[in-house]
Design a protein around this nucleic acid. Structure first.
Lengths: 198, 198
DNA sequence: CGGCCTTTTCAGACTTTTCTGAAAATACGG
DNA sequence: CCGTATTTTCAGAAAAGTCTGAAAAGGCCG
């Protein structure tokens, strides 16, 4: 499979971006290629040919991508070779990406912060340091709580929420003005257990 | 300045995480140190002593952090040396981080996608590739539009929005049930220009 | 200006990461 | 089982990134 200039540009761009995203060039390129091809699965040799990298490099890249759940293996009938593809739905990809990055980039920090906050602080410096850590911890908790909540929405609702944007904040004002009437309505639908209203 | 074990752990963790975040170890450590010390600014030599890295390394690290707007220089009276600190408010830090990461990690992709989508597609493969790119482009546009909207909120409101979480989606349901009454109220306050209702 | 203190630059040493080819392992049909 | 097709592993080459010390540059005050 020879890449068209169009696909080539896309693939090369993802290779470049790879470094900024903390993945390596080849991995970025493989992903880009599979993304473009989706839903058609490619086998390793097609990837080798399209990208001009070694077979072993592709093997390792595919393994890493599977570790991220960004690529899934597929078996085609009458073909012994493994084939690979990415989930087709971009919103699904977004969810996976968010989940995996959280797991790798946020969770470890959260757990270190928790641990350090448990330790007794003896000096004023340490007390100050813990106060700073507590602020960071609270922020991350708030973000991850929001994320855990939002990620459960079906895509259609997630899109609606995004489209609304800051409009939500305005709705909060409205809610305040309505002195609890919307809240009451929401409760009636069994929705408001988890949140604390103003 | 000698680091306590508590501060040490925090700093080392940020050093480690640095690689996953696409920044280097020293830069991560310098940032962690300044974050803990904030609002007290530190001079380069204090950083050198605390981290045990070379003066030149600190100089480069500080420059990078200034490029990210995560660290700002300060001049202390009666001291010719430059001092540095991070913004004290974690929400402010979050905003800066989001903005800079978007600039480096999202915007370039968005512009590549736009460019590639402008090009005429001749083959069926290219048409398919462009369709895939269009999906990705639409997703990113939606996310950045939401982000541009939300980032303008004052912190207090942003927090309220986060606390609400997926509750927003429930509010959307309520809105539907109320057959436009909330929308009308919102409009009266001049908030709903930009969004398309159901 | 000249001396002193501070910061920046940068060539190259060092470290880490990426990539490859060759060999080993695995899977599968006959 | 055997032979073939395919994938994985891995040692080391290559590339990329990080860090340092020495030297240059910058800035300030007398």
């Amino acid at each position: 499979m020879q890449l068209s200039p169009l696909a080539q540009s896309f693939v090369l761009h993802f290779g470049e971006m790879g470094s900024r995203w903390g993945i390596n060039r080849t991995v970025g390129q493989i992903y880009a290629l599979l993304y473009l091809a989706a839903p058609r699965p490619l086998c390793a040799d097609e990837i080798v040919e399209a990208l001009g990298v070694s077979r072993s490099n592709v093997s390792m890249g595919l393994r890493e991508l599977q570790g991220w759940n960004l690529v899934v293996p597929r078996h085609l009938p009458h073909d012994r070779r493994d084939h690979f593809t990415t989930p087709e739905d971009v919103w699904q990809i977004l969810r996976i990406l968010a989940e995996e990055r959280k797991k790798r980039e946020v969770d470890p920090t959260l757990s270190v912060l928790r641990e350090l906050l448990m330790q007794p602080a003896t000096t004023p410096e340490d007390r100050h340091a813990q106060a700073r850590m507590a602020e960071m911890h609270a922020l991350i908790e708030q973000l991850t709580t929001w994320y855990d909540d939002v990620k459960r929405l079906e895509t259609e609702r997630l899109v609606a929420l995004l489209r609304l944007g800051a409009g939500v904040a305005k709705m909060l004002d409205v809610k305040d003005r309505m002195k609890g009437r919307v809240v009451a309505l929401t409760r009636r639908r069994g929705a408001a257990e988890k949140k604390k209203e103003g």
